[in-house]
Design a protein around this nucleic acid. Structure first.
Lengths: 236, 236
DNA sequence: ACGACAGTTCGGTGCTCATCGAAGGGTTCC
DNA sequence: GGAACCCTTCGATGAGCACCGAACTGTCGT
């Protein structure tokens, strides 16, 4: 039996624009740091801290301390589902009732999508797996590239690894996928890889959303460069 | 594209205990009057008015003016779905991810359930339909009983129609079902009928919730008294 | 060891909003 | 027509809370 107070308490977590912005940002499945979320929502770090406390206490987010950073992400896939249901209601237009269209769109998202600026979904995980044998090391939490792996990647994406990198973005980082429940390659390497995939039209965006589709050229490229075959049609 | 402000605005509608209580009350599919909701949530009528304005403006509720009454109900089935999803999250325990259990429970609810104090779901609609040929008239919005229908009902539920009724509850009223999207019999007549069904064990409650199941005796009673057959196993 | 950095705690400020009572407008019943 | 009733509008009140800056703790790089 759910009381009105319980329901109101849950809704109150999302009833603030800043907290809503945090949750929408986390909807991409990545882990964000408290500072990134503060900057993204335009509030002071102290304010972001308070919001994250409430969201974690409310069970919507989980946190992972790492050194002086505090990473947060959505607690589980059901939270992401709930957020997307709510977000759907705020959009005008027809086809609001859990339509076939929404289901297939969701299935497309599961197959492959961009996650912030790198590849996610089954496609992202498959690419990450394939790279594991080519110089990508799973290092506790996150990833690292061997020199050979870096050279291989640099050759693929056409980019000089010796050249100094602006900013301090980590080269390779892990990103937990909320549909696959698996880590996949993010960071600068993941972004460059995704850029290359899009530039070469190995994947193309479906509509204006985050979902992507593997092209015929993409199939060939994956086979040639990584020796894998990713099914493009829904399994089962 | 959903903005954080949109999401927060939607969540804010449910972030108040009184408004949450209103929505949970409406989850039974009935239309409630503003006064009933004020009494149910324990606030002044003026306060309830303000809340209903916000909920209607936000698209969660629809209203229907009838004389000096203002009836409100959930805008559509997707709102009910959303509320139940949120309510599920507030309950602790496992099996939170849209499990088979939740789906079958939902299917049982669609087949038959009590709606406040009368029968709803396919069962409720079927009974209402069958009574249409036996003295139940659809009167614009709502229902009315002919003298013959009243006598027939009084005989079935063992109740003297001549005896003065306490309170002012309408004898027969319509109640829109959010799974069937059809009107069914509510009001005092619907309550008495439901009481008789439960007392005679024509229907029994499934677990502790609102879902009910038609018994073998119930099948026979429906055939004898109303000449209808309601399937108890899931169709299709 | 030192500075730079990420995050936290704390006190103060201001705004939003839920609430009520009183007064007013419609509707129904007698 | 008048009384009872349902609902609404309008101020006033008070509590909750989102926000910031400043001071503080802990971590990383040099």
């Amino acid at each position: 039996m759910t009381t009105a107070a319980d329901l109101a308490g849950l809704a109150a977590l999302l009833a603030d624009e800043t907290r809503a912005g945090i949750c929408l940002a986390l909807l991409d499945g990545r882990s964000w740091t408290a500072g990134e979320l503060a900057a993204h929502t335009g509030v002071a770090p102290s304010t972001a801290t308070a919001h994250l406390h409430r969201l974690v206490a409310g069970g919507l987010l989980v946190e992972r301390r790492q050194g002086r950073h505090r990473y947060v992400q959505l607690a589980d896939a059901s939270v992401a589902q709930l957020l997307e249901d709510l977000a759907t209601r705020t959009e005008p237009g027809p086809a609001r009732t859990g339509s076939l269209r929404a289901v297939t769109a969701s299935a497309a998202l599961r197959r492959g999508r961009t996650c912030y600026d790198h590849l996610a979904g089954r496609l992202g995980v498959a690419v990450t797996d394939a790279m594991s044998g080519r110089g990508l090391l799973e290092r506790g939490s996150g990833f690292a590239l061997t020199p050979a792996g870096l050279a291989w990647l640099a050759d693929l994406v056409g980019w000089d690894p010796a050249q100094p990198r602006p900013g301090r973005r980590p080269l390779a980082r892990g990103c937990l996928d909320w549909t696959e429940r698996r880590e996949h390659l993010g960071g600068l390497a993941g972004a460059k890889l995704c850029e290359t995939f899009l530039d070469n039209r190995w994947v193309v965006r479906i509509g204006s959303g985050r979902a992507v589709r593997l092209t015929t050229a993409g199939h060939a490229a994956l086979r040639d460069h990584l020796g894998i075959t990713v099914t493009c049609s829904p399994p089962r």
